[in-house]
Amino acid sequence: MNATHIEPATALAELKETKPDKVTLVVLSGDMDRVMAALIIATGAAAMGMQVTMFFTFWGLNAIRKENVSSSPKDWLRRAFGWLNKGGASRLPLSRFHFGGLGTTMMKKVMKDNRMPGIPELMETAKDLDVKMIACTTTLGLMGISKDTLIDGIDQLAGVSTYLNEARHGSVNLFI
């Protein structure tokens, strides 16, 4: 009988390769500062070799919506809601000191002057580092956002089970 000899070191190395540390982030907020924190953690974790999943729901969906593209839900309530709730990575307001856009514009200027990446740049970096992005189907429906108005590169449209299935294996699970 042929016994397969496995070198323990190699076997362990492969195990590490297939089961890396996992990070999951639920992004509920659509505030620029909060989404920025989420993306910094996501890109940082990915740079550390961790597997990262971001689950966007409710206002967080605004971060993964195309700019100046509107969905046209059939009912007038959701259509009106769509006029008020504009999406786009570069249009997210600050959670404080937004001041009708003035505060956020000033913050963006300070960030740019200091070579700090903004939300659009961080999103690009996240995709570049293979951060998995999931959009929540329930809130997409609730808010009348059609999937064709989401940015390219969204890996999945899914629900709570998908999130939990990922989070179950996560060593870091955050709700932002």
Binding site: I40, T43, G44, A47, M48, G49, N114, R115, M116, P117, T125, L129
Partner: peptide
């Protein structure tokens, strides 16, 4: 130089 967290780490990786 001139880059803040998380850029130095991302560039390093």
């Amino acid at each position: 130089l001139g880059y803040f967290c998380p850029m130095p780490i991302i560039l390093t990786s």
